[in-house]
Amino acid sequence: MDCDHAIELLPWFLNGTLAPEERREVAAHAASCERCAAALAGTRAAWEVFAQHVPAADLVAYAADEPTAVDGRTVERHLAGCPQCAAELEMARASRALIENEGVAVMPARGRQGGVRMWRSSALAAGLVGLVAIGGWVNSAQRAHDLVAQQRGGAATVPLHGGGQAARSGALFNVPQLTLSADDDSAPPYRGGSAAPQIPTVPQTSELLLVLDPSAKDNPESNAVDLVDPHGGVHPLGAGLVKTKDGYYTLSLPRDLLQPGRNRIRIYSTDGGRRTLVDGFTFQVGSGRP
């Protein structure tokens, strides 16, 4: 193994996933070669940078609309680009909504499904709880199932993030971007608007947290979102999607809603009953967890 190869392997040396033989060779370089030792120090510095997240105390303060210790603008910019922190913020907000509003029952928790990293699905759960708590709309597991039925049947307009209040305020986005996250790390989050070349694939067994990242400005019109399933069926997902404080529009999809094949989410602005397609996002749903 030459120095260049050893340097390339340093990130995986640090995360402990190299094969034993590779590990021994990289360690030998780093211990005896000045250039490799410097590269190891640089890799550690990069590791620390990429591991940065908004401190938990600041996330809680932000969720409480209070000043943060870290500069508030930095927090907001980080939240706009970090799905993990955005998901944790969502959890903190859902937590507050639940403790402040005891009239809302919580849905029974489901069992853990294997050893996958679960922050995304936790965010989904939090998002659903947020819907429950803020909208006072679903107050039992049975009604949660009704949500799926409603969305499948396409008979009802379902208030999204922010519930009834959101539907009334009706802010919208302009040329949104989409982050699509499954409940494990089997695939990287998909980012991009309708012009993005790649079509992400997610397991059918995943729950999805769709995070719409507004690009330039908000359009103060009402809006609507629907899902086109692989067979062409159209399922209204709701209206009144509003921008969260962290700059996202979040939309949680119950897992039972998705069918294997190519699905598409369409976003409309509505004005005086007329709907105009704003953007659409296509993703492939697999038949199961990979």
């Binding site: 859902a94 005891e102 919580v106 699905s121 759960a125 939090a126």
Partner: peptide, 12 residues
Amino acid sequence: RAAYPYQRRLGP
């Protein structure tokens, strides 16, 4: 109630 949204993530 306040801890509920974190339950799934905290697992066992």
